[in-house]
């Protein structure tokens, strides 16, 4: 039995400690915004925040996750999140949309670390997230948009 903190709530989970957090979120807690895309930390569709750091939940065991504060796409919030979501919708970034939970989690973490990222910063932070629809041009533009919004709000 493990106690985990997800989105500011604690849950008792009676699963094997090696169970990837991805499947605990999806199958036990029924939080399905975090997606399975590869299972080997290649695609980033399962990105969550662990104490505000982006991590791949497919390779994060339940027993490790229980020591941290987990945030998923369902409950991630803050000015960066609002700016990113607004930019995503304004640019119609998603196509099939399946990877976008992970893209947004990575983009939010990027903007929290580097409020005005360069193209090269975006390459670094986002190249762990695959989009088979190749919405990369729009993701890049939307991140710049969101950075602009945040800058405007800060002034």
């Amino acid at each position: 039995m493990y106690t985990i903190s997800v989105n500011n709530q604690t849950y008792d989970v009676d699963e094997d400690g090696q169970t990837p957090l991805l499947w605990v979120l999806r199958d036990i807690l029924k939080m399905t915004g975090t997606k399975y895309g590869c299972g080997i930390a290649q695609c980033g569709a399962c990105t969550i925040h662990v104490d505000d750091q982006p991590m791949r939940s497919c390779t994060l065991p339940l027993e490790v996750a229980s020591s941290y504060r987990i945030t998923t796409i369902e409950a991630v919030e803050g000015t960066e999140v609002e700016a990113v979501r607004a930019a995503w919708v304004a640019r119609d970034v998603p196509q099939c949309g399946f990877c976008q939970s992970g893209q947004i989690m990575s983009a939010v973490a990027l903007l929290r670390t580097i409020p005005s990222p360069s193209d090269s910063d975006i390459d670094t932070a986002m190249s762990g997230n695959i989009c088979r629809c190749a919405t990369y041009n729009r993701i890049r533009a939307a991140i710049h948009d969101a950075a602009g919004t945040l800058k405007g709000a800060a002034e």
């Binding site: 999806r26 399905t32 915004g33 997606k35 369902e74 979501r85 995503w88 919708v89 998603p94 949309g97």
Partner: peptide, 21 residues
């Protein structure tokens, strides 16, 4: 003429077959 699903696909709310309960 813009997509109608961009918000649902930006919040994790969009349900795919993988998510069906």
């Amino acid at each position: 003429v813009r997509r109608k699903d961009s918000l649902a696909k930006s919040t994790g709310a969009q349900v795919y077959t993988q998510d069906v309960q």
